[in-house]
Design a binder for these strands. Structure first.
Lengths: 358, 358
DNA sequence: ATCTCCACTTCATACGTATTAGGGATCGTG
DNA sequence: CACGATCCCTAATACGTATGAAGTGGAGAT
């Protein structure tokens, strides 16, 4: 006996019975594809009427099990986006993804059910949850490498927002051109007379960090400057950045400018603001400083730090466009797209101080 | 011949063959449920080893096909949320919905694939798209009544954010208490000496508007004031609100205070700002003014209008909680929940001018 | 009248998993 | 030795859809 509490949702079989045809006919009418013009108009109408009357809607699971498309794109983030202050950073990506998904005629499936950080796994419960969607956009800094590898091995169609690499195989991505942007930032500082430029990088060795370092070295080379490895400093937590640090670098290394890699949250900006407020070191009079990226949100009362900004919504849109492209191909090959960043002049860099160490 | 381009992912059958057991045994081991302690330890290990070696991951589609539920909650908005400036209004709802959805262990399906306003129908394509999800949260002001009716008839589980009524049957909703909030606003104005209070309502006769009007009448009654029907004015577009209007009301009707129903976009605030800038009428010196709700986003440089604000994220969370509750019931009955609004004092109301008409 | 052809519809099956009823050993017991 | 009991496993089936093959009936041709 079927459960009588919640009425079972109607299936194609129900419609078929109701309209006096076979389930196969219903399928042909509903999915409306190539073979559907084989159906007589009267039959088609009868089926549609029955479907409307019974309130039919296709079962996604069955459809995608069969191998067909269900017109869902997934969005999966490796970090929790919504509850934290990171959301200000990720929201523009989401916007772009959402917008383009709608424009392409897909619906968006937000993978978010995680009870704890440990559960934040694509393969939670032994299953690749992403497979519910036709393809997936991935996002986030703290990638689980083994999962990314597995995804590539399964060759599930996905596009990463941000450049990513895996050991074997290639990842499709839409990335920001950190190399060029960082290099340009070095060039600008060099133009203003700086010769001792410190690069403050994240500890983790992720692609975005590697790209910035590469841009730093490239920029120095282009300017004809030597790389002093002591000027590449790792910082576990940008909140640790203090006036003491900066004064030490100025005094001991002759540093006149600092490039800082920001985080997706507000820690870096908070640290900078604290430093400014302490008035122990002035930017850019004592030292120029520029951000290799853009903190989450920019409110007008915040200081206009020199930086470059990512076209986040554009990247989201481009990722969806690429994904839909991949889905259309029989033998999809990985694609890569790099989008330039925008230089934001700001007011935290200036000419190198004259009194610097020679 | 299997397609060699996209390699087929291993299934339980593959593992079974590999481990020399049956598919059923694999399923028992993998899903690990109640009956899995029936399996000999040696067999279990063999299966797990084979699964690991082949890189098995369960197929969600098949799993949820078998089970009926797919652990998806839908979010459908009757207005386009993302590309417009309305998004600032709807975003907090989305936040709450997303957060609670994740907390409840569901994924969120955003229905957004609409190419035109005409397509913005639940029943586009003759099928109820919402049914892709186990249940759905609905949102938006411009509801399609006939669709809402149909949804209720189908008894598809859904919760509306905002109070809604249908002709027959009951809608589950999480609404804001506009009646109490508006009534309280009237009381506050009365306390400050106002006797001639104009209510500027939306033209459309939706529940939120009706509730505000009810609160207005209730507030007047509680203050012992008569209702002058001329003081209830409809405004098709809040952008039409001008200094001329206000001066006319002050001069001809003796109005000393105005209550305005805001829109989800920035039109009302723009109109108010324009009026303030024109300096033809001053708030609150010439006339007090308060908003019956809250415009999309509040940036610090914006004037601090007196208003009340909706606990939008809370409403989103509550809606999801209610929906999950409904899904858990065998015979779900409609539920209603009303959440109080917060009074924001602001600076646009003050004591009634003395020189007003008696 | 028989055959062909065409337009339309149905049959049969596959997709991958969960589950229930039961089958085949092995063991203990009478 | 026969019989049930126990343990471990498998066969069979259902879930809802899509699709290539096969079938049906009627119109037209021979």
């Amino acid at each position: 006996m079927p459960p009588q509490g919640r009425r079972r949702r109607p299936t194609q079989v129900d419609i078929a019975r109701h309209a006096g045809v076979s389930q196969a006919t219903v399928s042909l009418v509903i999915s409306g594809g190539a073979a559907s013009d084989q159906i007589a108009e009267s039959t088609r109408q009868a089926v549609l009427a029955a479907a409307a009357e019974l309130g039919y809607s296709a079962n996604v699971a069955a459809r995608s099990l069969k191998g067909g498309r269900n017109h869902l794109l997934g969005l999966y983030t490796f970090e929790p986006v919504f509850p934290t202050d990171q959301r200000d950073f990720y929201y523009p990506f989401l916007l772009g993804v959402e917008e383009e998904t709608a424009a392409q005629g897909y619906d968006l499936l937000l993978f978010s059910s995680v009870s704890s950080a440990a559960d934040r796994s694509i393969y939670a419960g032994g299953a690749n949850r992403l497979k519910l969607a036709d393809g997936c956009v991935l996002l986030g800094r703290n990638v689980r490498r083994e999962e990314l590898n597995a995804l590539v091995q399964e060759d599930f169609p996905f596009v990463f927002i941000g450049r990513r690499e895996v050991d074997d195989g290639e990842v499709s991505y839409v990335g920001a051109d950190y190399v060029a942007a960082t290099s340009a930032m070095v060039a600008e500082l060099h133009r203003q007379g700086h010769r001792r430029i410190l690069y403050l990088r994240a500890i983790e060795d992720t692609e975005p960090t590697r790209d910035r370092e590469q841009g730093y070295r490239k920029g120095l080379a282009a300017a004809g400057l030597e790389v002093d490895e002591r000027l590449i400093q790792g910082l576990a937590d940008p909140a640790d950045l203090s006036a003491e640090h900066v004064l030490h670098w100025i005094g001991n290394y002759g540093v006149t400018a600092i490039l800082v890699e920001p985080t997706e949250d507000n820690r870096l900006v908070d640290a900078l603001t604290a430093m400014t407020d302490s008035e122990r070191v002035r930017f850019p009079e004592d030292c120029s400083i520029a951000l290799l990226g853009e903190p989450p949100s920019w409110t007008p009362e915040l200081r206009d730090w020199t930086r470059f900004s990512l076209p986040r919504a554009d990247m989201g849109r481009a990722a969806v466009g690429m994904l839909v492209g991949l889905l259309g191909e029989a033998q999809p090959a990985a694609r890569q797209l790099t989008i330039p960043c925008t230089f934001v002049p700001g007011d935290s860099i200036g000419p190198a101080p004259r009194g610097g160490r020679p």
